[in-house]
Amino acid sequence: MSDSFVYTTTDDPRAQPLLDELLNEYDSRYGTFFNPEGARAEMTRYPPEAFAPPHGNFLLLIRDSRAIAGGAFMRHSADTAEFKRIWTDARFRRQGLARRVLVELEDQALRQGYSRVYLTTGFRQPEAVGLYLTHGYTALFDTSVDPETLKRTLPFEKNLAAAPNPAFAENAADYQGSFHP
């Protein structure tokens, strides 16, 4: 069993099963709470270009030619990447894959010149809240309050350790479609 990261686009056919499962998960947890059109409105809120270099990226974790986890980021501000769609196929959970995706996204955001991460998760996603809190993210909400009572997205931030790489924009094509250990 060998896993590898692949930087690709949201249109990659290998991503579709993961994105479909994520859509179903969002709909089952939130229905039309955030949008009358349901999760599809959130999933199509940003154009594919938002998750492409030089300002964003989209990755899949591949095992045996199959996407088992993935995630993306886009530009939030000049120094801040916004992470989106961090997801693990339900059949492969409890293996630390979301953590691996999170770490790889952080590393790639650094390579692309970001020094900070911002992200949100839903108030009915305790697994995500736990992941972020145990990996150095600061909650930008009161964690002593039951998230269900907040009834909104839960924001987090993290300052990344290394200095940003301003040369990334010049060499963005070198990073597209390749693995970075």
Results as ranks from 00 to 15, higher is better:
Val101Phe: 07
Thr8Ser: 11
Glu25Cys: 03
Thr9Lys: 03
Thr8Asn: 05
Leu110Val: 14
Leu97Met: 02
Lys158Trp: 02
Ser115Glu: 04
Arg111Leu: 15
Glu104Tyr: 13
Leu140Cys: 14
Ala172Trp: 14
Gln108Leu: 15
Val117Gln: 05
Tyr7Arg: 13
Asp174His: 08
Ala15Arg: 13
Phe179Ile: 02
His180Asn: 00
Tyr137Glu: 05
Leu154Met: 14
Thr9His: 05
Gln112Tyr: 07
Phe168Cys: 06
Lys158Thr: 00
Arg124Leu: 15
Arg100Val: 06
Ala109Gly: 00
Pro54Cys: 07
Tyr30Trp: 09
Lys84Asn: 09
Ala67His: 08
Leu61His: 07
Thr88Met: 03
Arg116His: 12
Leu18Gly: 00
Ala162Leu: 14
Ala69Ser: 11
Leu133Thr: 00
Pro48Ser: 10
Leu110Cys: 06
Ser178Arg: 11
Tyr26Glu: 07
Pro126Trp: 08
His180Cys: 00
Thr121Ile: 06
Tyr7Ser: 07
Thr121Arg: 13
Arg85Cys: 01
Val129Lys: 10
Leu97Glu: 06
Thr10Arg: 12
Asp79Val: 07
Leu22Lys: 05
Phe73Asp: 03
Phe33Trp: 14
Lys151Leu: 14
Ala41Gly: 08
Gln95Arg: 15
Glu42Arg: 06
Pro126Lys: 08
Thr149Asn: 08
Tyr118Gln: 07
Ser4Tyr: 08
Pro181Met: 05
Glu170His: 12
Thr32Gly: 05
Leu61Trp: 07
Gly38Asp: 03
Ala162Asp: 10
Pro13Lys: 14
Phe123Arg: 12
Asp12Ser: 07
Leu59Arg: 06
Asp11Lys: 13
Ser178Lys: 09
Glu106Ile: 03
Gln108Phe: 02
Thr88Lys: 02
Gln112Cys: 04
Thr44Glu: 15
Phe179Gln: 04
Thr138Leu: 12
Gly70Cys: 03
Arg45Lys: 13
Gly130Arg: 15
Asp27Ala: 13
Leu160Trp: 09
Gln16Trp: 07
Ala172Ile: 06
Asn35Glu: 15
Ala169Arg: 15
Thr10Ala: 02
Leu102Tyr: 09
Leu140Thr: 09
Glu25Tyr: 14
Tyr114Asn: 03
Asp107Asn: 13
Ala109Gln: 04
Phe58Gln: 01
Arg100Asn: 04
Asp89Phe: 08
Tyr26Phe: 14
Ala162Thr: 11
Gly122Arg: 12
Phe5Ala: 00
Thr80Gly: 03
Arg99Gln: 13
Ile68Lys: 04
Lys84Pro: 03
Val117Met: 12
Phe83Asp: 01
Gly38Thr: 10
Pro17Arg: 10
Asp142Gln: 10
Ala50Thr: 08
Gly31Asp: 11
Phe58Ala: 01
Leu60Ile: 09
Tyr137Asp: 05
Glu82Lys: 13
Arg45Thr: 07
Asp174Arg: 14
Gly113Met: 09
Phe5Ser: 00
Asn35His: 15
Ser65Asp: 15
Pro13His: 12
Glu25Asp: 08
Ala90Leu: 11
Leu133Tyr: 01
Leu160Asn: 09
